[in-house]
Simulated assay, not measured.
Amino acid sequence: MSYSIDFRRKVIFTMEEEGLSIRETAKQFRIGAASVSRWINQIEPKALTTRQRKIDKSELIKDVEQYPDAYQKERAERFSVFEKAIWQALKKWD
């Protein structure tokens, strides 16, 4: 469940106004201290990233030929998948 931005602002405002610690604030609002801590740095929720589910074998082969020394992280970014998906595809297709 995601808390509304208004609620998040209220929590941070109350914490600053009353001089409460993160733990005290969390206890007062009955939420997790990690949430309060995260909201101090970034009040807006992070946008969800969409990743494709399958890697095209021919496209991956072309990518390996074009960038033979590329890191799996770089390939994952190009294919919009997680690094583990690249690792699994490379292992599967040798």
Results as ranks from 00 to 15, higher is better:
K92M: 10
K10C: 13
W39I: 02
E83D: 00
K54I: 14
S4Q: 12
K27F: 15
S80F: 08
E24N: 08
E44C: 11
M15R: 09
P68M: 08
T49G: 03
E65T: 02
I55W: 15
R8T: 14
S37N: 07
R8C: 15
S2E: 11
D94Y: 09
V11G: 03
I12G: 08
I22T: 01
A76W: 02
S35Q: 10
D56G: 08
S58Y: 00
F29M: 08
K62F: 02
L48G: 02
F13R: 07
E44V: 13
R30L: 02
K92L: 11
A76I: 05
Y71G: 00
K84E: 09
Q66A: 06
F13D: 10
F13M: 07
E74M: 07
S4E: 09
R53Y: 13
I22E: 05
Q88N: 13
L60C: 03
F82Q: 03
A85D: 01
R30I: 04
A33W: 01
W87N: 03
A70F: 07
Q28F: 01
Q72T: 03
A76D: 03
K54P: 11
E59N: 04
F7M: 13
E77D: 05
Y71A: 00
A34P: 13
K46W: 00
V81R: 15
E74P: 09
E77L: 12
D69I: 04
R23W: 13
Y67N: 10
P68T: 06
I43S: 01
S35C: 11
Q28V: 02
S37G: 10
E16K: 15
I61R: 11
G32Q: 11
E59T: 04
S2W: 07
V36M: 06
R9Y: 02
R53I: 15
W93D: 10
W93E: 10
I55P: 06
D6S: 12
G19V: 04
V36T: 11
S58F: 00
M15P: 01
K46L: 03
I43N: 03
Q72W: 06
I12C: 08
L48Y: 10
R78H: 14
Y67Q: 09
D94K: 07
E83L: 00
T50R: 11
Y3I: 10
K84I: 05
A34V: 14
Q52K: 04
K57T: 09
I12E: 06
E77H: 11
R78M: 13
G32Y: 13
Q42I: 06
Q28S: 04
G19L: 06
A70M: 08
A34Q: 13
E65C: 03
L60G: 02
I5A: 10
I31D: 09
W93T: 11
L48H: 05
I86D: 00
E16P: 14
T50E: 07
R53H: 15
Q42M: 04
A76Y: 05
K73Y: 02
I5V: 14
E83W: 02
F13P: 05
Q52S: 09
K27Q: 15
K91H: 15
T49Y: 01
S4D: 12
W87D: 04
L90T: 07
I31T: 08
A47E: 04
A33L: 01
A85R: 01
F82A: 01
I61K: 12
V64E: 10
Y67M: 07
Y3S: 12
N41S: 14
F79C: 14
T49N: 04
K62G: 00
M1Q: 11
K62M: 01
S21K: 03
R23L: 14
S2I: 10
